[in-house]
């Protein structure tokens, strides 16, 4: 996340983006993607702001946000850990990998650690089925994650030094 920008700058960026679009209403999903990219999530006030700007009911914005699993209304931790629950990973031990991650991070899938460092989520197939089971940290794929030790080593890379 780009934390050097203040909330005002976020809002400015979002407005600039919306203003640059020729057909605003039909681009609601693209706008939400953009907003989530800069804010990291989609808080109520941002959804409300988008609704105002596009001149559509905020219920419509909420309806779209809640429909698509890619959009989140909860803030995420600094690093997002995803476990692939696609079929290929499932038959090669994704469930075990998920349990192990829940153990090591001491949270359940869908939650964020109290120190805000990791959010654990699941997704389905990133196309690296040959490396199943896979976990994805901040978009980087780590394959053949069978051993607790290996999993621990991957997580350690994202923990602050010391």
């Amino acid at each position: 996340m780009c934390n050097s920008d203040s909330p005002n700058e976020f809002a400015q960026k979002l407005d600039n983006y919306i203003d640059s679009l020729p057909n605003k209403k039909e681009n609601l999903i693209a706008i939400l993607h953009y907003a989530q990219e800069i804010y990291g999530w989609l808080p109520d006030n941002v959804q409300w702001h988008i609704a105002q700007k596009l001149d559509i009911p905020s219920a419509k914005v909420y309806g779209v946000v809640s429909f698509y699993s890619y959009f989140t209304m909860k803030p995420r931790g600094e690093h997002v850990v995803n476990v692939c629950m696609g079929t290929a990973c499932f038959v090669r031990g994704a469930e075990k990998l998920k349990n192990e991650l829940e153990n090591q991070l001491k949270i359940k899938a869908g939650e964020t650690t109290p120190d805000n460092l990791f959010t654990l989520e699941t997704l389905r197939c990133v196309g690296a089925c040959g490396l199943a089971p896979v976990m994805i940290v901040d978009g980087e794929v780590h394959g053949k994650m069978h051993e607790p030790q290996e999993i621990n080593e991957v997580l350690a890379k994202y923990r602050p030094e010391g």
Binding site: I29, A30, L32, H33, F67, Y68, S69, Y70, F71, L123
Partner: peptide, 15 residues
Amino acid sequence: SDFDFDIELKYGAGA
């Protein structure tokens, strides 16, 4: 030719 065509990308959102 007299054929015009353009393509735009649209993104899914995990459904």
